[in-house]
């Protein structure tokens, strides 16, 4: 395949692409396109089937519920997408969400008339701090991301219990102005949904149109090459953890607004799995370098729709978990096939 086969005589002097490679390329492209389309089709299929079978699915109240659920997921998954793009992971997001929710909730018990921006700022600030610890451990402590954030997942959850003394935040502790955030506003959409869409859009702009965002892709795609190009991988990975932490903290406040209850044991517990699922289902490779926010949005939408559809159809919560898991596996399998096809295209020549 080198020097002997490629030298077929009489061809013009330019680099010809071997045939096998072209085929792998076509398969690869086809699969990638199929993937995005597949998500949309899956979402539509779930929605239509459920709407036909259960009349309460396609109601305004239920659609709003879906959007509220997805908002939390989308917010946190936006940060997670950045982290994963750099070939890292943030497992602590659920605990950060719980920590922010509980701290803000207790704060509101004593200061019930805090303004909403201040409350949101407080939550995001707490998350930023938690994210800074994660980022420092990974970027400068050189602790593998899975281990570092698995550790802080436990530590932050522990802090939730210590801070709350096992007490939960009850609906009467959550002031009206905060609850309004999760109720329909002037545009007919709850402010919370708008915030999530705004943040996701901002995330998309950062990832697609800023040097820093492009560097995130580069670091995940080939860390050594990134270093050779003089990209400051440590700083940028740290930044992704800051963003992920801040958005998780922000989401913690919205969680309190949405559910009016923050239980130290259940608020955000296991949420990291849904967040990573939305990211991976959306096509962001767990090995970094490819993917993005639009995919994550579709991933969150699919997960939210499935969860709601199952609930509306009266399927038990246990089945919900199993089905969620199956969807994740399917998404990862498609990703693996795409990778393998791409690798074959390259290896065939070497």
């Amino acid at each position: 395949m080198r020097r002997d086969e490629a030298g077929a005589a009489g061809q013009p002097l330019h680099l010809t692409v071997p045939r096998t490679e072209g085929r792998a390329r076509a398969i690869n492209r086809g699969l990638a396109r199929f993937r995005d389309l597949g998500l949309v089709v899956a979402i539509a299929a779930v929605a239509i089937t459920t709407a036909v079978r259960s009349p309460q699915f396609a109601t305004a109240a239920n659609l709003q519920r879906i959007m509220l659920d997805i908002s939390l997921l989308l917010l946190v998954a936006t940060g997670q997408t950045m982290v994963v793009l750099t070939r890292n992971i943030d497992l602590s997001v659920g605990s950060v969400l719980g920590l922010s929710g509980i701290v803000v909730g207790f704060m509101l018990k004593s200061h019930p008339d805090m303004a909403v921006p201040a409350i949101l700022g407080l939550g995001a600030g707490l998350g930023l701090l938690a994210g800074a610890i994660n980022g420092a451990l990974v970027s400068w402590g050189r602790v593998p991301a899975v281990i570092a954030t698995l550790g802080t997942l436990t530590v932050y959850r522990g802090l939730v219990f210590i801070f709350s003394g096992g007490q939960q935040v009850n609906p009467q502790d959550v002031p009206r102005q905060l609850l309004q955030v999760a109720r329909p506003g002037q545009l007919g959409l709850p402010p919370m949904v708008l915030m999530a869409l705004l943040v996701a859009t901002a995330g998309w702009v950062v990832l697609r149109y800023t040097r820093t965002g492009r560097a995130m892709y580069a670091i995940g795609s080939n860390p050594d090459a990134a270093r050779m190009r003089g990209l400051q991988a440590g700083r940028i990975v740290f930044l992704t953890y800051l963003i992920s932490g801040a958005l998780s903290g922000f989401a913690g406040v919205l969680y309190a607004a949405r559910f009016a209850t923050v239980n130290p044991a259940s608020a955000g517990t296991g949420f990291e799995l849904q967040v990573i699922a939305a990211t991976v289902i959306g096509g962001t490779s767990i090995l970094g370098g490819r993917g993005g926010i639009p995919g994550t949005f579709l991933g969150a939408l699919l997960l939210g729709t499935i969860a709601n559809a199952l609930a509306v159809s009266g399927v038990s919560g246990f089945w919900q978990r199993a089905i969620e898991g199956a969807v994740i596996l399917a998404a990862v399998a498609v990703d693996a096939v795409i990778r393998r096809q791409a690798a074959r295209g390259v290896a065939g020549r070497a």
């Binding site: 040097r211 560097a215 190009r229 390259v346």
Partner: peptide
């Protein structure tokens, strides 16, 4: 030593992207 997931153009300009003004968008 390139970035396999990124486009040819990005590989050429990674770390050196042409950006506009006033917003530093690629």
């Amino acid at each position: 030593t390139l970035f396999p997931d990124l486009s040819v153009a990005e590989n050429i300009f990674m770390g050196n992207h042409p950006v506009g003004r006033p917003l530093p968008f690629v």
